[in-house]
Design a protein around this nucleic acid. Structure first.
Lengths: 343, 343
DNA sequence: TTGTATGCGTTATCAA
DNA sequence: TTGATAACGCATACAA
């Protein structure tokens, strides 16, 4: 049997409305009765039903985090951002719901979003990685005014609420650093090229080489899949294609690990023969051998920011129109031995 | 403006009850009217409000996953189990809510649980790592009949619903394997010793050494904190304490990475000088250098099982009493180069 | 097969 | 300052 507000009211000899007022503080309640009510609440162990509250209040204090596919939680990026979101959610009194869109067609995605909407969530953090063609349904989602959505780690768009990390700038740091260390032939192992993150990092590689009068030879580009194995395979492919390679930019740390692994296997010395830079700066990167230079993304912070901004929109949205927010976080290069030239 | 079942009813010229029946299928509806209703639902884009449904049905189709502290999502174990849970949840039509208990006192934890309960969740997966003293509030939580709780990765207890992995057996495999490979002095770097997982693995280390007539010297025990750095520090400490060490059992892969790192730094060769075994079999472990032997835990599967069992309890619980379920999953040793003796 | 009335637990409005 | 009553959106007895 669930203990309701009526139970409390009866025992405290007041009406249900008064109990509600005592609890929310929205209307004054005489101190004596308030005390009496609080006491009986404690005695009965009463806890307001959030479902019922949500029904009448028209909010749920739930934020939905939408991600895609199964493996992604295992990716450092996702769990790290999620941790940031969670921290802020706790602070602001939201519960977070994890939702998964499976399927790529517009229809399937719309259905998923509708189901989330059916939960009356207060807001959505859309952390589905952006791939080619996604823009279509993004527009469809956004066309509905409820609920507010923040797009996390997506390509900035002045019409959408976006919290993101500057991938171009991060990759530029990585490549510039390799050039500074004297590298002339720098290969890149990218993530899947239908992710915009991958594209941004690849563009930065190209541009940075060109600015420095080096040739962004297409044969130096290997498409990986974020997993260590693809770093391993990619490294072997690079070495086969060009023996003069003296630097490798792996677009995440797992793939960089595959690169280091291959170097060991082939008896190459890093950083003596080849310099390596990764991306993500996962906690383990500092303990690879040699310790890996990597681009730190502040994913935790981006998650926090996303929730903060969403909260803002939810709150102010009750009063007036809000304009799309844009927060682009700058990454930082963390230099370790894997990229320190030995003379 | 929210589209309600009444809107649909009016436009389709039926009563709200009939629309409900058409949707749930619990009562027969004439095919003609059913069709008419479905059409108008599509036209209006109606979606039943789960909050309202939950209020009357007394369930929410939400499962709460409770974990503790901020960093844990970054741990391979948690994200991996979560992925399994998510997969099954999707399949069975549950949404999952992530909840965090912060604070260690009974009172704080009870409060957290009450808040979750206030959401009317259908069940809870309690994935808070078990530390000393936790048993007290576990009992308090369980004493309430609603909602059903599965304890994930906790010490088996005949009175509780537990889905867990056999830590003792996993650690035994690891240590036995080292002994098989000829190790005589085997150090262990444990997780925090107030986790029962750590205790179980440590006991297995002790027992297995003794069974094989080796001495579980206390000076060979180093307490780590799961992070790579503690593996590094631990390895150095072990080597200082005893130069004859020829095997190390690191109780997770990150710490094992720290061990490998230290070996490189000190110019020790693995597995020539010292054999190393890790725990978790994280995806990256196969790409460490040398590739790391590790205990694979099937965390993904344990997550799935937990949700499956919880679902079972929820369903059958509506009819009668269910007895505590106990599922102990056996891990497997994955042998790689880090533990292959070179003669 | 369908419509009507009632309840789920809470908050808000309007009187008192 | 408090109590009675009507919503919130849906499902379900009971009648028709």
């Amino acid at each position: 049997m669930k203990i309701t507000i009526e139970d409390v009211a009866k025992l405290a000899q007041v009406s249900a409305g008064t109990v509600s007022n005592a609890l929310t503080g929205k209307r004054p309640v005489a101190e004596a009765t308030r005390q009496r009510i609080m006491d009986t609440i404690k005695v009965l162990g009463y806890e307001p039903d959030l479902l019922a509250q949500g029904l009448v209040n028209r909010y749920s204090r739930i934020i939905s985090i939408v991600i895609t596919e199964l493996l992604e939680l295992g990716f450092y990026g996702y769990s790290s951002a999620l941790t940031g979101i969670q921290r802020k959610a706790n602070e602001l009194g939201y519960s977070i719901m994890l939702n998964f869109v499976n399927g790529k067609t517009d229809e399937e995605i719309i259905t998923s979003v509708n189901q989330i909407r059916a939960r009356r969530v207060d807001g959505i953090i859309w952390a589905v990685h952006e791939i080619k063609g996604n823009r279509d349904w993004v527009k469809k989602i956004q066309s509905q005014s409820y609920p507010p959505i923040i797009f996390l780690h997506m390509h900035p768009d002045p019409k959408l609420n976006v919290v993101s990390i500057d991938n171009y700038s991060g990759a530029k740091m990585a490549v510039s650093h390799l050039i500074d260390q004297g590298c002339k032939r720098i290969g890149i192992i990218t993530g899947p090229l239908d992710w915009w993150e991958s594209q941004a990092r690849l563009s930065a590689w190209k541009d940075t080489l060109e600015i420095n009068n080096l040739v962004p030879d297409p044969s130096l580009i290997i498409e990986g899949d974020w997993l260590a194995q693809s770093g391993q395979i990619g490294m072997k492919a690079l070495l086969e294609r060009d023996k003069t390679i003296d630097g490798v930019f792996a677009c995440n740390d797992s793939m960089a690990l595959g690169v280091l692994n291959t170097a060991c296997e082939l008896g190459l010395s890093i950083p003596k023969d080849i310099l390596v830079v990764g991306y993500d700066d996962a906690p383990e990167a500092a303990y690879y051998w040699p310790p890996l230079t990597s681009v730190h993304q502040f994913l935790n912070q981006s998650g926090q920011t996303a929730l903060e901004e969403l909260h803002d929109i939810i709150e102010t949205g009750k009063k007036g129109i809000t304009y799309p927010i844009q927060r682009i976080i700058q990454p930082e290069l963390v230099i370790r031995k894997s990229s320190m030239r030995i003379n």
